[in-house]
Design a protein around this nucleic acid. Structure first.
Lengths: 182, 182
DNA sequence: TATTGTTATACTCTATAACTATA
DNA sequence: TATAGTTATAGAGTATAACAATA
């Protein structure tokens, strides 16, 4: 949702009464950690999508390429498991990347049911280019922060993540196709 | 996407080479501000959706209710504009809330094309309950942070938002139905 | 002629469940 | 009988464009 989605008013403990006064979203919106992190997270994801667009690569395709690169030769199912992508969705994703000769399916002689995923040379090159763009994106995001401030931000965010019971490294958005990274 | 979506490796300047080594997402993932804020933002949104679920209210419906509350009597179009919701989508949203007698459309004698939106008593009550849940959510998110740390986190996030050219208070996710707040 | 609200159509994405081939 | 991959079907959500009423 949008501006009015902010759930915490200017004063955290002011209570529901402030909902009905004349001060709308514009002033109260950015005082809630929940709304702020959700808003910025979404904007970052959208921004990253645009950053990757020139490569004709979606964030989730970048994620998939990276997963294949990280453990080459794994079965389609295994990689889908790690990314929490159901088997039937993996098919289309792998199809698209294979059609562009970025990855390839190979038969596994030991178990002819499985298809081992491997990167091609073109796939490696594209990952490198995407990675360079991502690093640039990250640097732009943090352009206003010193190294110490950046570490501080990450430390604070991790403590919020812990409150959510969030497992490090797993982006739930994968399932819903909202994805991004810097 | 998921874990492998992190674009920045453990060392921010290490470069694409680290893509091909044996260290996968698990260790590198949470070192990028972009990935971290996007991941947590998504998790917060999902969490908030579950918080609201007992009220049978979606985050975007909460946002819409709040927008109506903030400027009662505004036309459907005006409120849609503020929330960046196109007119044709507003119809279904307002239909749903009106069917539950949370808001109502009234004819405007001065311009009979427009429908002024007003909250009902039930709508006000539901907002209050949703708001209480949102405050609890925010407190849980920040349960591990002192007041000073919370302000620090918000200040750092705002500086990242500024780098993105993000207008305070407008949650772009409204358009894409990924929405939340604490 | 422009605008508000509405409706209709087509398209995308996803989940679910069959289906095959191997094991 | 179970599993990896695939395909088919149906459903949700959305964008786009037409439409009616009013200005």
């Amino acid at each position: 949702m949008g501006g009015p989605l902010d759930a915490a008013p200017s004063a955290a403990g002011s209570g529901p009464a402030s909902l009905h006064d004349a001060t709308p979203e514009s002033t109260a919106a950015f005082h809630s950690v929940g709304f702020t992190v959700s808003t910025i997270g979404y904007a970052v994801a959208r921004d990253f999508r645009q950053i990757l667009a020139p490569l004709e690569l979606e964030p989730r395709e970048f994620a998939l390429l990276r997963a294949v690169a990280a453990s080459e030769g794994q079965s389609q199912h295994a990689i889908g498991d790690r990314l929490q992508i159901p088997p039937s969705r993996m098919v289309a994703f792998v199809d698209a990347l294979e059609a562009r000769s970025l990855i390839e399916r190979r038969h596994n002689p030991e178990d002819r049911r499985t298809r081992a995923l491997h990167l091609t040379g073109a796939g490696r090159e594209l990952i490198d280019r995407a990675f360079a763009l991502a690093v640039g994106h990250e640097q732009r995001l943090c352009g206003d922060l010193s190294d110490a401030e950046r570490e501080q931000l990450l430390a604070l965010l991790r403590r919020v993540a812990a409150q959510l019971g969030l497992a490090p490294g797993v982006h739930a958005a994968l399932l819903d196709s909202v994805v991004a990274d810097g």
